[in-house]
Amino acid sequence: MIRLETFIGNYLKRRENVSSPFWIMVRKEISDQIRSWRFIVLLSLIVLTFLGATLVAMGNIREVVSEVKDTDNLFLYLKLLTTTEGSLPPFHVFLSFLGPLLGIGLGFDAINSEQQRGTLIRIMAQPVYRDNFLLSKFVSALILVGVLLLTLTMLMVGSGIILTGILITPEEILRILGYLFVCIVYIGFWLGLSIFLSIRFKQATTSALTGIGIWLFFTVFYQIIVNLTVKSLMPDAYRLSDAALLRYNELAMDLLRLAPSQLYTDATTTLLMPAVRSLGPITMEQMVGAIPSPLPFMQSLMIVWPQVSGLVSVTLALFALSYYLFMRREIRS
């Protein structure tokens, strides 16, 4: 028993003093990011948006709450995150187009700037694995994003508790954590994309522009293109049966869901609004006998499971692609 204790003690002592090269790199990356102007700019952008959205929600919360009849299912904090008066979109919608900017901003020069400066080859000449370097870039930015969003949300919940005196329910905690997870994965997707571009392109500006281009394509043009395509495929709407119309509608939705921002919006809306029961059109037959009450967390999660797994898998696929590219890369500057 004593031996076991000394063993554990020694192990902990070792852990304390000598971290693995991977965590040393992560630590260095995080401190670099925090001290950079770029992060301060992105941070203030996100914080301002969050404050704006929350203040608007706080201003309207009285009206929204007074409409709720079932006080067991108040979901005050979810409402704080989603309520809006129309002038400013709620925070999670804001994040669907600010998130990509955050991801691209944190990753667009991850590899190529180090290669250009000649620091990459110095690090690679140390006894560290190449993939650890890449992973440290990804993980450090994700940790930053995660801490940032978690802090903001906790601040919001904390001030809500102080102002209203209403405690947060476990259901809400689960939903908010789920929402944060989706946010981090969504930003992780854009981060993975920008790191991939930073390996692919030697100039940081090229990779930044390409990243922004892809982001604009998905936020602005993709919807237009999908709508146009489906409309041109669809015969005259008046002659179609309801079932056929529904099929075309579903086709359009499916195509839209190829865009990560759509997956993100679907997932966060469902998680933050327990009243949302379906992400597509529902027929009257399906609604018959349904009780108009909020869904439990697990049921909401079931609805968005495909969206969440889609986001996670596309993020992992992008990272795997960058990994493949980086491992075979000539690293001389």
């Binding site: 040393i24 260095k28 000649g118 620091t119 110095r122 690090i123």
Partner: peptide, 26 residues
């Protein structure tokens, strides 16, 4: 390497400590 460059926003000592840590030193 032929073009030596360091992390510009770190001091000489910090640059060296980083490399030392990557080599398994405390």
């Amino acid at each position: 390497p032929d073009s030596v460059s360091f992390y510009d926003d770190m001091t000489a000592i910090e640059n060296l400590i980083y490399i030392g840590e990557l080599n398994g030193m405390t």
